[in-house]
Design a protein around this nucleic acid. Structure first.
Lengths: 133, 133
DNA sequence: TATTGTTATACTCTATAACTATA
DNA sequence: TATAGTTATAGAGTATAACAATA
């Protein structure tokens, strides 16, 4: 198995695990990403679309479904009355944290447990080097 | 950034690239995985569902849409007349190869180009170690 | 009775095009 | 005119439950 196969397979493994963890909390991968983005920001619908790589019309439905579950709210912008900012709720934050914690435990059990400490550091260094390019 | 963030982010990068490459050929990620599975096998609908982690009812629609595009065919099983085997066509194989080749080029440009040869070998070794657990 | 696969149904996710309200 | 957002519409993808055909 070469580098291409290794990274391809790894990405499916990791995304599969994340999807399964999210699913246990009745979240899709996209809803999980939505909450993840909103942990650090209070973006407009348009900015949210850019972060997620989605059309504005897709964001409308995505946010609506999250809002129905009480995970986010929308507030009118002060400056531009066409705009709305999306804000995560306490419930949303709790859910995002629960998924993130469980994902961290999955990495610990399935990656960290398999590699020696020096190997973990080296893997992290190499992946970061790739990501920063 | 720690190991958890690094692997999470990497998986999104890689899957995003793969989705974009597949999209250029009018394929979804799932359709791409379907063709990938069928490169090595001629499974029944049920076996296909196990490979893809999908319910049999989901597989019905997935295969139907691939069949409409001429990427797969279904043949009746000789042994069990309830069963149908799914077989990839020449067109399907060509499409699967095109996506795989382009993905390999993406890895070469975005990963291999960033790492020294020894680092590439080490990254491959570490990822394989994780995957084999 | 059990298994293979399809169908009916319902929901999420996505994009395009048309629209409203504001800038 | 241009931009922010929603709505209407269409299609892919998914699961559950009910069903038909075969084992």
């Amino acid at each position: 198995m070469d580098l291409v196969d290794a990274l391809g397979q790894l990405s499916f493994e990791v995304q599969g695990a994340l999807a399964e963890i999210a699913g246990k909390h009745d979240l899709s991968l996209v809803q999980t990403r939505l909450l993840g983005v909103l942990r650090d920001r209070e973006p407009t619908m348009q900015e949210l679309g850019r972060h997620l790589g989605l059309d504005k019309s897709s964001v409308t439905g995505l946010v609506l479904r999250a809002q129905r579950r009480g995970l986010v709210i929308r507030t009118a912008s002060e400056l531009d009355r066409r705009s709305a900012h999306v804000i995560i709720t306490e419930d949303g934050l709790r859910l995002a944290s629960a998924v993130a914690d469980e994902f961290a435990r999955w990495i610990a059990a399935n990656v960290a447990a398999v590699l020696a400490p020096a190997e973990q550091r080296e893997l992290t260094r190499l992946v970061k080097k790739v990501l920063s390019s």
